[in-house]
Simulated assay, not measured.
Amino acid sequence: MLARSLRLLSFSLSLAAAQPALAVIGGVAPRDVQGTRASTVRVETSRGELCSGAVIAPQIVLTAAHCLMDGGSISVVSLDPRFRARRQPVLAVLPHPSFVPGTTPRTQPGTDLALLRLAQPLPEDMEPLMLGGGLWQGETVTMAGYGLASENNRRTARQLRETQLLNVGNYTTQNTVKVAVDIESRGETPGAGACRGDSGGPVIRGQARSRDLVGIVSWSSGPLKTRARLICGGFTAITPVSEHREWISQASARLLALGEPLQGSPSGASGNWSFSR
């Protein structure tokens, strides 16, 4: 069955509409305080963009770079142990140097990753994820995000959900991503997967209590065998973190070394930097 999914993968992605993965179709709301609640945040901009993010340090969140291209101030929302929302501002944003603004996630020739530096550390009940190793074919992973639970119902967004998926291999256009599918439907019929609002959400190895971050959600597409034009519930594209560990570590250190900037960007700052005020 896995081999069949792989054979269908390139064909189905060439037909299905691929979109930024902006909530979890077929997911469930977590109730484990030490699960994805402690490592997943909601990323929002003042211009209405909604994405998700993975906590990798008390003041650092890893997310998808395409989520942040519309500008505006940025904040993150975490959940306390009673699953109540609390908001914190973002001080600075650093996209991966290969990221090309203005391209869609699917045609992105660079790496769809960005780091956020928060103005203050997250509360102590949040537990940063560790950068994991390679994601292998046939492995079961857990993804989490704050997007839509129903593709056509925007009211279902902004609630944390999680689901288990199966990694079925690589998909390459301008770059290479991992692709995961619903364990039962295998991407052929509607099933669990990313949707609008899940971009930037963590993909962790194994169960929801795992601290092993193996990827970041980038985009999604609909299933192969459906007459409806869907952009969710089929394939979930994941940017693997193992190939970018060095940049994530070095860039995080650079962000943590920042002092409080003056209004706007400081003189001499690299063009890759932006400050959220």
Rank of each mutant, 00 (worst) to 15 (best):
R155C: 08
R158Q: 08
L160E: 02
Q207S: 13
T156W: 00
A114N: 09
K225V: 11
T140L: 07
Q120A: 14
P89W: 04
T140G: 06
D182P: 07
S185T: 15
G222I: 09
V93Q: 08
R205Q: 15
R186H: 14
L135N: 10
V93L: 09
R155D: 15
N175D: 08
Y146A: 00
S220N: 08
S199M: 02
T172M: 14
M126C: 11
T176W: 12
S199E: 06
A85D: 13
E151P: 08
V214E: 10
T140K: 06
V177S: 09
Q164G: 15
S150D: 15
A157F: 00
A192S: 08
L224G: 12
E188D: 12
Q159W: 08
A85T: 12
G215Q: 05
G200L: 00
Y146R: 00
S98I: 01
P123R: 05
T111G: 03
R106F: 14
G206N: 09
M126R: 10
L166H: 01
R161S: 05
V177K: 09
L166Y: 09
E184T: 13
L131G: 09
K178F: 08
H96T: 08
T226H: 06
A119T: 09
P123M: 02
R155V: 13
A144S: 15
A192G: 04
R196D: 14
R154V: 15
V181P: 10
W136V: 14
D125E: 10
G206R: 03
G201P: 07
P97A: 02
E162G: 14
G206Q: 10
S150G: 10
S221W: 03
G145C: 02
P123E: 02
G133A: 15
G102Y: 04
R106P: 05
E139Q: 14
S150E: 15
V141Y: 07
A85G: 01
A149G: 06
G191D: 05
K225G: 11
D212P: 03
G200N: 03
R209D: 04
L113H: 03
G206P: 04
E124Q: 14
A85F: 00
D182V: 02
D182C: 00
I216K: 01
Q207V: 12
G169S: 11
A157Q: 10
S220H: 01
A208W: 00
T172D: 13
R209H: 10
V217R: 01
G215N: 05
V214L: 07
R161G: 00
V179N: 05
G138H: 05
G138W: 13
G102N: 11
L131I: 13
G215H: 03
L116T: 08
T176Y: 09
V141M: 14
A144T: 06
P202L: 10
R186F: 12
